[in-house]
């Protein structure tokens, strides 16, 4: 097993609001290896975007952070902007949520892709121009289209251009925030193929942020399932589906229709807790179908349940017979 290229350790993020404080990320830890594709999944508001914005050092001014983010072992958040800026775009890059709709409508696509390079002095003028052409080709757009304007590109092409822009300074980690969410299923398939191809060709590590479980199931070897600012469970995607160790993971899969699945689709009653109030016990407990004595009062620890498989659920810490044998918390 190779060394982690990215380690996030006990990350906390608070947003200052007029009425108080919102604890958006409540102790998130994960590791990413070079060239690995990892999914970060969960429903709206669980803290996915906030987590990866912290890794980029791009949180808004009303946010405060605790915890560590290590790039190749170096803590890049230690001294704020001073320590993170040298790595931003050069080592760690991001495709923002909705990036394909965020291009400046009156500037040529190619010039916009060249911006980060010029900003970082990685290339200038002619050299930058040549690199823009190469980048466009890399993401499957003819280099000659660099002088087109955003409205002359289809949605799928704008998403490709947004990916090209993130790759401009040759990063080793790409954080992609909902890169396929607004796209049709056929264009989504094309973008997924591109992202998988890029990780394989360039050895790029990918954090794939999405609320779409099937997309992660088909593109990532590993995933972390987030709920209310915490990671409920993390492990190989196959294990999350076939051997879930957190009821939220199991229920989330069960709520997701599958084209060829025949099981009844369920919904999870209730809604996620407010993050501007202190959460006691397990955050998922009010909606959980397996809650028992400790859940409302005791915060579950994140424990290793198998090799490279962790979960934060009390069920994993009680003797098996109490639950009626092994697999009682499983996906089915």
């Amino acid at each position: 097993m190779s060394e982690a290229i990215l380690q996030v350790e006990d990350l906390h993020i608070w947003f200052d609001l007029d009425e108080g404080e919102l604890h958006a990320v409540q102790g998130v830890s994960f590791e990413l290896e070079p060239g690995e594709r990892m999914g970060l999944v969960g429903e709206s508001g669980c803290g996915k975007t906030t987590t990866i914005l912290a890794v980029m050092g791009l949180l808004p001014a009303n946010a405060s952070v605790a915890g560590r983010v290590l790039f190749n072992g170096e803590d890049i958040l230690e001294e704020g902007e001073n320590t993170v800026a040298p790595h931003r775009w050069k080592d760690i890059a991001m495709v923002f949520q909705g990036a394909m709709n965020a291009f400046n409508p009156v500037k040529r696509i190619g010039d916009q892709i060249a911006e980060p390079m010029e900003l970082h002095g990685t290339a200038r003028g002619r050299q930058a121009k040549g690199r823009v052409g190469d980048l466009l080709e890399l993401v499957g757009i003819p280099g000659s289209r660099a002088d087109r304007y955003p409205h002359e590109f289809s949605g799928g092409m704008r998403q490709r251009a947004a990916i090209a822009m993130a790759l401009a300074c040759g990063p080793k980690i790409l954080l992609a925030d909902e890169p396929t969410t607004a796209l049709d299923v056929m264009v989504q398939a094309q973008i997924l193929e591109l992202l998988v191809g890029l990780t394989e060709e360039l050895g790029l590590a990918l954090v794939f942020v999405t609320h779409d479980l099937p997309v992660v199931a088909q593109t990532c070897g590993r995933a972390a399932v987030m709920y209310a600012g915490r990671i409920a469970e993390e492990g190989a995607t196959a294990d999350l589906y076939h051997d879930a160790r957190h009821p939220y993971t199991r229920l989330l899969f069960a709520a997701t229709p599958d084209l060829h699945g025949k099981e009844k689709i369920i919904s999870i009653p209730g809604s996620p807790p407010r993050l501007d109030r202190v959460i006691t016990g397990c955050p998922f407990q009010p909606r959980c179908d397996r809650a028992f004595a400790p859940c409302p009062t005791v915060t579950p620890r994140t424990v290793s349940v198998a090799e490279r498989h962790v979960a934060a659920c009390h069920l994993n810490e009680v003797p098996a017979e109490r639950l009626g044998g092994a697999g009682a918390t499983g996906a089915r």
């Binding site: 997924l192 479980l213 199931a217 088909q218 995607t237």
Partner: peptide, 11 residues
């Protein structure tokens, strides 16, 4: 269209 719909089962 049917062929590109991702399955929730990673396997």
């Amino acid at each position: 269209l049917i062929s590109v719909v991702p399955s929730r089962d990673p396997l």
